[in-house]
Design a protein around this nucleic acid. Structure first.
Length: 550
RNA sequence: GGGGGCGUAGCUCAAUCGGUAGAGCACCGGCCUUUUAAGCCGUUGGUUGUGGGUUCGAGUCCCCCCGCCCCUACCA
């Protein structure tokens, strides 16, 4: 819809119609006033702009003092530095022949500008009188300080760069409604500068991660999002359709199997930062599409990936502490302790390390190998029945029987893991980043077992603030073992799962070509950003999180 | 999937036992050349998320639906 007549220089006219809110109609009238001043409300290319932050730093106290001393004789030259800035109007105070405004841009929440009838152009002054909160203005003039000591651009000219037709949120309490903030992120960003900062830091964290990986000789690659079968993780995929071939396709649920193919092909170190899609529940820690980094390093193992991960996260924490300090919020307490919710998380100290079985025994008071006590404890906590709900249909009847009947039907390791997730994970200190090493092989069928302890898989999970940040593995590279474990896993699927989970024959063919031993890593980037920004909801660190249609 | 809460002016929020829908900010008009959420004076602004029901009377009580939040479950 355009309300702009074809004739050049013709001012835009208010769109007629009764459905326009009176506040918007008023702003359309104010836009008309801008046109009548001979100005284009929507501006154009503007060279020589300084950020508000840079402009404020151009303040010259001596020149300002000289100017304000009043002794302006014939040869007086204003030595104050003139700047040109642009920003969105966040406050507007009309004092009659002097208009005060505060502008906001990405570099600075607010910089004051003053437009006086005496010193500004006639059009610029008129524009300032007609300006609405939310308009984007270009202001040119010297940097000075007011009597109250506030750095101010004293305008010689003002231009309009864009007109805001939408009534703004309340200027003090702002925009609080979480739904509106997520749906109209552009509005949230204007009103709540913190939102823009979070998205800016997210960008810097991803960029730094990329440089970090490249510094370690990893190549960034891109693998398919649209796949005939979605493999590499146990998650429900989104289904889509390809018209040209009239076939069903899936959105990827992991990048793993393709990255490993590249390792087979000879790329020894690869990583991909990209979007993963999982057709599962949505809550404050899960968005249907999220960003992961997966990395594979030939001739490494899970220890290699632990060192890499810990170093990377420490660097990201350093970057974040510096970012918040620059933004005027010195969040880091001590050397590298960042807040998250009510926690203080110390990234400077070496991360804690504990093995799965150690943590189990510490939290439960008995060894995971003590199957009698494992079953008794699980039954006491009601975890058997909970587990039985996952059973295949033919086993479900057994599930309604007592726990004693189930023993022997369910792998002990699965019951151990129910206790582990319920009790042991919860016992971790959320303020201490912790690697949990050495999961039972029965839980990680696609991971390489320890040479001397085949019941233990070379896998760790990193937990910070109670969140799983990512797993890493020593990858299985024996194609026959891999195939056997794939088949074993597939045989345990229920009807629904088996509709979208198939044996990836091509991946097995790739392994037969020969993959070097390798360490593999998966990191949840969104959750890392949550930690670095102290945002407890994943929706706050994704610019456009999933929302039901309005 | 289950339980709980919320939805009122552009925004932030009130509205007693079911009894005339209000305030602040924003907006509009007037005054004002060093203001700081500027100030002073005067206005304007509502399909109380949608649809139905009970009642003399519903923002308030009941039911359906929509959306959001929290807890829980599921899921890596």
């Amino acid at each position: 819809m355009s309300d702009q007549p074809d004739q050049k220089n013709a001012p835009p006219v208010p769109v007629p119609g009764d459905d326009i809110h009176h506040l918007e109609a008023q702003r359309r009238t104010n836009r008309q006033k801008v046109c009548e001043l001979g100005l284009d409300p929507y501006g154009g290319r503007t060279d020589g702009l300084l950020s508000l932050r840079d402009a404020a730093e151009r303040y010259d106290a001596d020149a300002d003092a000289e100017h304000q001393s009043g002794s302006k004789e014939d040869g007086y030259v204003d030595r104050r530095l003139a700047v040109k800035v642009a920003g969105r109007v966040v406050l507007h105070r009309d004092n009659g022949k002097l208009v005060w405004m505060n502008l906001r841009d990405q570099s600075r929440d607010s910089l004051q500008v003053a437009v006086s009838k005496r010193d500004a152009t006639e059009a610029g002054f008129g524009l300032s009188k007609a300006a609405d909160i939310g308009d984007i203005l270009v202001v040119e003039g010297p940097v000075m300080k007011t009597r109250a000591g506030e750095t101010t651009v004293w305008a010689s000219d003002v231009q309009s760069a864009s007109k805001c037709l939408v009534p703004p949120p309340e200027k003090h309490s702002g925009l609080a409604d979480a739904e509106t903030r997520a749906r109209q992120r552009y509005l949230d960003m204007w009103v709540n500068p913190e939102t823009t900062r979070v998205l800016a830091l997210r960008s810097k964290l991803i960029s730094h991660t990329r440089r970090f990986m490249e510094g370690r000789a990893f190549l960034e690659v891109e693998t398919p999002v649209l796949q005939a079968q979605a493999g590499g993780a146990a998650a429900r995929p989104f289904i889509t359709h390809m018209n040209a071939l009239d076939m069903q396709l899936y959105m990827r649920i992991a990048t793993e199997l393709h990255l490993k193919r590249l390792v087979v092909g000879g790329m020894g170190r690869v990583f991909e930062i990209g979007r993963i899609f999982r057709n599962e529940g949505v809550d404050k820690r899960h968005n249907p599409e999220f960003t992961s980094m997966e990395a594979y390093q030939a001739f490494g193992d899970y220890e290699t990936m632990a060192e890499l991960t810990e170093t990377l996260i420490r660097e990201l924490a350093t970057l974040s502490a510096g970012f918040w300090r620059d933004a005027g919020e010195d969040r880091a307490e001590g050397s590298l302790t960042l807040p998250f919710a009510d926690l203080s998380i110390d990234y400077a100290r070496p991360f804690d390390r504990v093995t799965y079985n150690e943590l189990f025994e510490r939290a439960l008071g008995f060894a995971s190998s003590d199957t009698d006590r494992v079953w008794a404890e699980a039954q006491k906590r009601g975890l058997i029945g909970k587990y039985a709900r996952h059973l295949k249909d033919e086993d479900r009847e057994i599930g309604s029987a007592g726990a004693s009947d189930l023993r022997g039907k369910i792998d002990d390791a699965l019951i151990v893991n129910e206790l582990f997730e319920e009790v042991a994970e919860a016992s971790l200190d959320p303020a201490r980043p912790t690697f949990v090493f050495d999961y039972p092989s029965a839980l990680s069928p696609l991971t390489r077992p320890k040479r001397d302890e085949p019941q233990i898989a070379e896998r760790w999970d990193l937990f910070i603030a109670g969140m799983e940040i990512g797993p890493a593995y020593t990858e299985l590279n024996d194609p026959d073992i891999q195939e056997a474990k794939f088949r074993e896993q597939l045989s345990g699927l229920d009807d629904e799962e088996s509709t979208f989970r198939n044996l990836d024959e091509d991946f097995l063919r790739a392994l037969k070509v020969g993959m070097p031993p390798a360490g593999g890593l998966g990191l949840g980037i969104d959750r890392l950003v949550m930690l670095m920004c102290d945002r407890p909801s994943i929706r706050d660190v994704i610019a456009f999180p999933f929302m039901r249609p309005e």
